[in-house]
Amino acid sequence: MRFRFSVLSLVLLAALGGTPAAALNPDETLKVVKEVDDRQRNSGDYKALVYIEQKERDKNDQVFEAVVYRRDDDDKLLILFLKPKSEAGKGYLRLDKNLFLYDPTVGKWERRTERERIGGTDSRRQDFDESRLAEEYTSKYIAEEKLGKFSVHHIELKAKPGMDVAYPILHIWVDKETNNMLKQEEYALSGKKMRTSYYPAWEKKYSPSKKAEVYFPKEIRIFDEVEKGNKTTVVIREVDLNSLDPNIFTKAWLESKSR
């Protein structure tokens, strides 16, 4: 009987593709998610030069160059478009839970939602902001999986009640070895998959304010799952972790840049 059970177990294991990896318990899972956040957190100021490219089926490609300013201490964020000429001076300013859009050609501010498509692309404010996964979502370990040649933790994240996030359900795949996030899938509340993003390259830089290294994705590839064929690529070309002028995160500063 014992022999038969062992054979059955082996057959089942073989059918499942080998020895199953040990699942992380909830604490360990949360630790991984926090680690993903912590590695990107600067605890100070952050400035990045980014390139955004949007490809849509049957439409012209859109490309932008923008500078992202971040003050992680008080959750402030400013995205200022620099190129092309027609977009230069437009900007998004996040103050607390508000996202404002400024257009210098009309000199107007508009309040936008968390689901705003930045510059009309498929990227969202969260793609440029500090990672706050542990703060905004509860986590659940799904499995250890393979993503190409990398062993990854597959974790499901669900938005905590009252959190205003662009997507209420996320699935993330985190590199077991480095703890860098390699893939993220975003879902609507109905369970419909909305976007798949890949983070194929990460860079690190020493931060004087954090007194440790800060990690940032060099490249983000975002694929639209609703409008198949649409994709956005974000490339972070330069990062500067020096202190920023406190006035940057004001409407007046952004207006002054294009006046």
Binding site: G148, T178, N180, P200, A201, W202, E203, K204, V239
Partner: peptide, 8 residues
């Protein structure tokens, strides 16, 4: 694939 993590 190129190395995932490198110094800036």
């Amino acid at each position: 694939a190129t190395p995932i993590e490198k110094a800036a």
